[in-house]
């Protein structure tokens, strides 16, 4: 190899066919005139909104959550109405019409939980996180923006899903004259509380995704907490089963109930437990996000 072809500093500039050379210099002159474009929390929220809504998987997952909430609520309500005459007196006394029509949330929580994990673990998996945190070096605005955007979207979706599921479900139950109305005591709270619960699971997934930075691991932990832990606690001796009152799944049931069950804590207790989970996991995620290398 010879060195004669090297011309350091020489301006042998030739733009690609699709690139007019003046383009770069035109932007440079604009540089001095433009206002400073700072990073703000609101702008990061807007960015995260664009990110969430520009992925096809988001639309599919949200559609799935909506569909299962409505379908499962309708099917269970229909089955109950048809079978009502076979119910025992005790079963009839403890029957919760609102909760029955809202029970699609048991599936919806899994869809929303997975989506919550993906909101952040997807960035780690693809390397996008370095682009994200590279332009928001304070990092925390990114975590808050993701949580706010995702919580808002999933709460809005689940309120709509629950209202449809409730209305359709009560229509099924009305054939056995066991339906309730949204204005009945505790019913609206159950509808909104269930949406809140599913949203909480989504944000919990997001926090786990941020902590573990790995999609399968975060989904595994989330599903373990939601599905496996209740089984383990259920197998504990009687004196220890109150531990179950502090599980997210029990808290969801507590929020959903209109007819109070002796085996469940109060809806307020459930809401507080869920808030505690959010505070702890998001705080841990925030601390680690700031400290760790990306």
């Amino acid at each position: 190899m010879s060195t004669q072809t090297i011309t350091p500093g020489a301006s042998g500039t030739s733009g690609a066919p699709d690139t007019p050379p003046p383009a770069a210099s035109a932007t440079a002159t604009a540089r001095h005139a433009r206002p400073q474009q700072r990073v703000t929390q609101l702008r990061v929220i807007r960015s995260e909104w664009t990110k969430l809504t520009s992925l096809r998987s988001t639309a599919w997952t949200l559609a799935a959550a909506l569909a299962v909430t409505i379908l499962l609520g309708v099917i269970l309500s229909r089955v109950t109405a048809n079978d009502w005459t076979n119910y025992s007196a005790e079963d009839k006394r403890t029957f919760d019409a609102a909760a029955t029509s809202l029970s699609g949330m048991y599936l919806a929580q899994l869809a929303i939980g997975v989506l919550g994990v993906l909101v952040i673990s997807g960035e780690y998996a693809t390397g996008m996180i370095r682009a994200t945190l590279g332009i928001v070096p304070h990092r925390l605005p990114v975590l808050w923006a993701k949580a706010i955007v995702f919580a808002t979207v999933s709460f809005a979706l689940m309120v709509v899903a629950n209202l449809i599921a409730f209305t359709a479900g009560q229509a099924m139950l009305s054939s056995a004259h066991i339906d309730v109305s949204l204005s009945d005591p505790g019913v609206l709270r159950a509808v909104l509380g269930t949406a809140f619960f599913v949203t909480t699971i989504g944000v919990l997934g997001l926090a786990l995704g941020a902590l573990l930075r790995n999609t399968p691991a975060a989904i595994g932990v989330l599903f373990g907490v939601l599905l496996v832990l209740p089984q383990i606690v259920g197998a504990l001796p009687q004196s220890l089963t109150r531990i179950g009152d502090y599980l997210p799944s029990t808290s969801g049931d507590a929020l959903m109930q209109v007819v109070r069950s002796s085996s469940l804590p109060s809806p307020t207790h459930g809401a507080l437990v869920l808030v505690a989970y959010l505070v702890v996991t998001l705080t841990a995620a925030a601390l680690l996000l700031v400290r760790r290398d990306v």
Binding site: Q37, T40, R43, T50, S54, I135, V136
Partner: peptide, 12 residues
């Protein structure tokens, strides 16, 4: 959309 998401953080 990728570029737009990045741009939004700075109001670009």
């Amino acid at each position: 959309k990728h570029l737009l998401a990045l741009a939004h953080t700075h109001g670009i």
